[in-house]
């Protein structure tokens, strides 16, 4: 018997005025799974993740976290989720330490946990730096630290490495890899970098125009067709476009 899923998304639709952002998505995620939502900008990744995060409501369909819907369980579900949004700017004149301390307090976490997280995301030396003075990579590691502060069972990261140079990107990947090795946290990560999906996630979901085009492991996705060298080729084969256009 397989363990019960941590996230279930059933036939979810969501539109904004004239845009159909998400059109009939189904997905199920089990404990310890790392899943990538891979798609170009505007594919509906953010809308889908924000519905799972309970920040947006689906027009129709069902979302359950740990078997529970958001409605009526918001308080307990917020406790077990860690997330990072795209392009969040923190309080400029607050230090890294103070920012983590603030978010820690929302979960009832004290100083000790803040120290652990600083170490986990490699920001001990920047503990006294104002967030406005952090580099792009440091800021993303702070966002990741905030996402991890409550020992989340579910981690939802929206484009955690967009705009970062390759080094800064690899630093984030290292943190996530060690997290996978040391806990049974489940993760959904959105990205339009195929390397990121390949490197971090066993399960890859290719999404475009609000629909899931294909999903599975790297082997599942590329195995059938020897002409496909990578995920970008696969995306082109499916849509006629490239991931980065």
């Amino acid at each position: 018997m397989s363990p019960s899923p941590v996230i279930e998304v059933k036939n979810v639709f969501k539109s904004f005025k004239t845009v159909h952002a998400v059109r009939g998505v189904n997905l199920t995620i089990y404990p310890g799974q790392f899943v990538a939502l891979l798609g170009p900008n505007g594919a509906g990744k953010t809308t889908l993740v924000e519905m799972i995060e309970g920040i947006q409501k689906p027009d129709s369909g069902e979302i359950r976290i740990l078997g529970k819907p958001w409605k009526g369980h918001e308080k307990e579900l917020r406790q077990v989720i860690g997330l990072s949004l795209q392009e969040t700017r923190y309080i400029e004149k607050l230090t890294t330490f103070e920012t983590l301390r603030l978010f820690g307090s929302f979960f009832g976490m004290g100083k000790e946990r803040v120290e652990e997280v600083l170490q986990l995301v490699g920001l001990e030396e920047k503990r006294k730096a104002y967030t406005v003075n952090l580099s792009g990579g440091q800021r993303q590691r702070l966002a990741l630290g905030i996402a991890l502060i409550n020992h989340p069972r579910i981690l939802l990261l929206d484009e955690p490495t967009t705009g970062l140079d390759p080094n800064a990107r690899r630093e984030i990947w290292e943190i996530l890899r060690s997290l996978r090795a040391s806990s049974d946290t489940s993760m959904i990560l959105t990205t339009h970098y195929m390397e990121e999906a390949e490197q971090l996630c066993e399960q890859i979901i290719i999404i475009d125009e609000g629909e899931i085009l294909k999903e599975g492991t790297m082997k599942d996705l590329l195995g059938e067709d020897s002409s496909l060298k990578n995920l970008d080729d696969l995306f082109t084969a499916l849509t006629g476009r490239r991931l980065h256009d």
Partner: peptide, 13 residues
């Protein structure tokens, strides 16, 4: 506008 409000209410705050 910084999306910080959105980030904060996605916690048990």
């Amino acid at each position: 506008s910084k999306k910080l409000l959105r980030r904060m209410i996605a916690t048990p705050m």
